[in-house]
Amino acid sequence: ELREAFAKVDTDGNGYISFNELNDLFKAACLPLPGYRVREITENLMATGDLDQDGRISFDEFIKIFHGLKSTDVAKTFRKAINK
């Protein structure tokens, strides 16, 4: 299930999730959020999830993000976006 969610976000299939891919995910989900809020959520996920600070999120980092977000608003938003 997590591998499928990761693949859905990794639209270019390079094995990593970029800032733009995350941002595009939230935009495509048509969530009722202003653009600046989408950017804040994306920046927050990148800042906390990109553990090796290479500017992208690997599958291992994605798993840690996903499990670390349990019930936060960001987690709910992220799950809604993935499930669209």
Score class of each variant (00 low, 15 high):
32 P>W: 03
32 P>K: 11
75 A>P: 14
35 G>S: 13
61 E>D: 13
63 I>F: 06
77 T>H: 10
51 L>T: 10
53 Q>V: 09
73 D>M: 10
16 Y>R: 06
8 K>M: 05
40 E>S: 04
75 A>Q: 13
43 E>L: 03
63 I>M: 13
46 M>H: 08
39 R>A: 10
30 C>M: 13
79 R>P: 15
76 K>M: 12
10 D>E: 01
76 K>V: 10
66 F>E: 02
16 Y>A: 02
70 K>E: 11
53 Q>R: 08
30 C>S: 14
77 T>N: 14
70 K>V: 10
37 R>P: 03
44 N>G: 12
42 T>E: 08
22 L>R: 00
31 L>K: 10
74 V>I: 10
41 I>D: 02
53 Q>E: 12
83 N>F: 08
44 N>M: 08
63 I>L: 14
34 P>N: 06
54 D>E: 12
36 Y>N: 15
6 F>S: 00
60 D>N: 10
59 F>E: 09
56 R>D: 04
62 F>P: 00
27 K>W: 01
73 D>R: 07
36 Y>K: 14
50 D>F: 05
3 R>W: 05
20 N>V: 05
40 E>V: 02
81 A>Q: 12
63 I>D: 06
23 N>Q: 14
11 T>N: 03
75 A>H: 13
26 F>A: 04
72 T>Y: 09
64 K>P: 01
60 D>S: 09
10 D>K: 00
65 I>V: 09
41 I>N: 01
44 N>C: 08
13 G>S: 05
49 G>W: 06
54 D>N: 10
52 D>G: 14
72 T>G: 13
50 D>G: 11
66 F>T: 07
34 P>H: 04
58 S>G: 05
61 E>V: 08
13 G>L: 02
30 C>K: 15
22 L>W: 01
21 E>P: 00
64 K>Y: 03
26 F>Q: 01
47 A>H: 10
55 G>E: 08
73 D>Q: 10
79 R>W: 06
21 E>T: 03
18 S>H: 09
22 L>P: 00
36 Y>W: 14
65 I>G: 02
28 A>F: 07
31 L>D: 07
37 R>T: 12
76 K>E: 14
8 K>S: 10
64 K>W: 02
19 F>Y: 06
55 G>P: 03
33 L>P: 05
42 T>R: 09
40 E>D: 06
84 K>C: 11
20 N>T: 13
46 M>Q: 14
44 N>K: 13
17 I>Q: 00
59 F>Y: 11
33 L>A: 08
44 N>T: 13
77 T>S: 13
26 F>R: 00
19 F>I: 11
11 T>R: 11
70 K>Q: 14
